[in-house]
Design a protein around this nucleic acid. Structure first.
Ligand SMILES: [Mn+2]
Ligand SMILES: [Mn+2]
Ligand SMILES: [Zn+2]
Ligand SMILES: [Zn+2]
Lengths: 140, 140
DNA sequence: TGCGAATCTGCACTTCTTGAAGATTGGCAA
DNA sequence: TTGCCAATCTTCAAGAAGTGCAGATTCGCA
């Protein structure tokens, strides 16, 4: 995702308005590596801007996602996650604490795949589940 | 998933009752390659057994899943899918018609993965999205 | 055949997300 | 700088998927 300043430019260039709510979300998402949900962003946003609505958070995030500025991820954790990292990457979810981290996979062209015959695949996502270092230490 | 007859055995052996509702679901799921949702199974089940409740369908499928007889899959299609194929395999979803097919992947040990340090990974799932042969022909 | 635990049904309720409508406001034009 | 109006925001209702609960029913052993 581009910087708040660049997004401001881009929004205005496209005839979209730059509201305080949007700017706040630009800031909250920029460089955010937590893979937050709309709800958790709403919490953060509410601290700085009491009265902001959850609907606006959803709206803005979805808009950013459809502009390609961020990615919305369904990692099977209940709510959709928003990710400003739009590089090709995958994820690992800690099934105990819910922590999510980026995973970079290379060499997938060497995979032997059976069953995709005729399919025009537009996206491939790999999801790892398990216990994060902290949680696996605890459960020993 | 084992056959209806075998499941009947197994259920009784574990002190679980074998009801007509359960038997019907055993039959509907056995060898089912459609990756149905609870709702769609409820539709099918209702034809043969009017009055069966959606609650019972969910209950039975979840029970079978926790017994390891079938797998419940979140493929990002809204509702959970149930799969009697418990061999290690992955899936491809047609984003237009919703069709789901099995995908078998081998050679994944040759992948170069970065970001899993310290994680105790218990499951890896690969999801392909795209257009099935039929749908990609249509959209040409 | 009878009994009691297991199961089923019906329904309320939760969570996540979107639709709709009216109030508000950003940004350009004058 | 002011005013306008389309875009945006807030609020609230509602949809979709699933689960918890309670009372009615039934399987399966004695
Ligand atoms: Mn990420
Ligand atoms: Mn499958
Ligand atoms: Zn953890
Ligand atoms: Zn298709």
């Amino acid at each position: 995702m581009r910087s708040p300043a660049e997004l401001t430019e881009a929004f205005r260039a496209h005839g979209l308005k730059v509201t305080p709510q949007r700017q706040l979300l630009f800031r909250l998402m920029h460089g955010n590596e937590c893979h937050p949900t709309a709800e958790s962003l709403f919490q953060s946003a509410s601290e700085q801007m009491p009265g902001i609505s959850l609907r606006t958070v959803y709206q803005t995030l979805n808009d950013l996602a459809s502009m390609g500025e961020l990615r919305s991820l369904d990692l099977g954790t209940g709510a959709v996650r928003f990710d400003p990292n739009i590089d090709e990457h995958h994820h690992v979810v800690c099934d105990r604490c819910g922590d999510i981290r980026d995973v970079y996979v290379s060499g997938s062209d060497a995979l032997s795949i059976q069953g995709l015959d005729g399919f025009a695949v537009s996206n491939t996502s790999i999801l790892f589940n398990g216990l994060c270092p902290r949680c696996s230490a605890v459960s020993e």
